[in-house]
Amino acid sequence: MVLEGNDREVMQGCRRGDPDAFRVLFDTYKDRVYSIALRYSGDAGMAMDITQDTFLKLMSCIAEFRGDAQFETWLFRLVVNRCLDHHRRGRRFLPLVSGLFDLVRVSSETVLHELLRAEFQSSVQDVVQTLPPEQRIVIVLRYTEGLSYEEIADVLGCSTGTVGSRLNRAHKVLQRRLSHLRKSVGGSRE
């Protein structure tokens, strides 16, 4: 998002410390920030912490954002840094299990389907968790946010070649470890 019109007003409001403007910004980006944090950490509680830290950081340093760059890129840098910080602090990222508790509430007809989906999801998430941080964050930005190589390179401050090689290495690991899900995806072309 290159800031225009209302977005620019919201940003200026945030710079002035206007809580309403900040609420607008929060509502616009909370899902994206939380999703990156969740997919990176694999833990809902940790994702909450990372998201909270990211928005608090955003509040304190929004004046540093000049408005001539992509706001999303700037915001994603904050999230990525928070993710890597949490990782460096040595916290254990637990597998995503919170979704399973939600199954209790769904109807019996859909339980099996949801259970399978949750199992798949958990499995994919667990395998993603095994990736080294620099490969994992590239995977999250690529598949959760759908960023291009160039956009990922901007966020991470590296070259597109580096992004490509990290993705390539991550793909190889994921392909090997998720091969048991290949048929269920229905994407086998052998």
């Binding site: 899902d31 999703s35 909450m48 993603v128 690529r142 959760t144 946010e145």
Partner: peptide, 12 residues
């Protein structure tokens, strides 16, 4: 597979 299982979610 990755696109489907690493989708965006709603924040609490």
């Amino acid at each position: 597979l990755l696109s489907r299982h690493l989708t965006r979610v709603s924040a609490p």
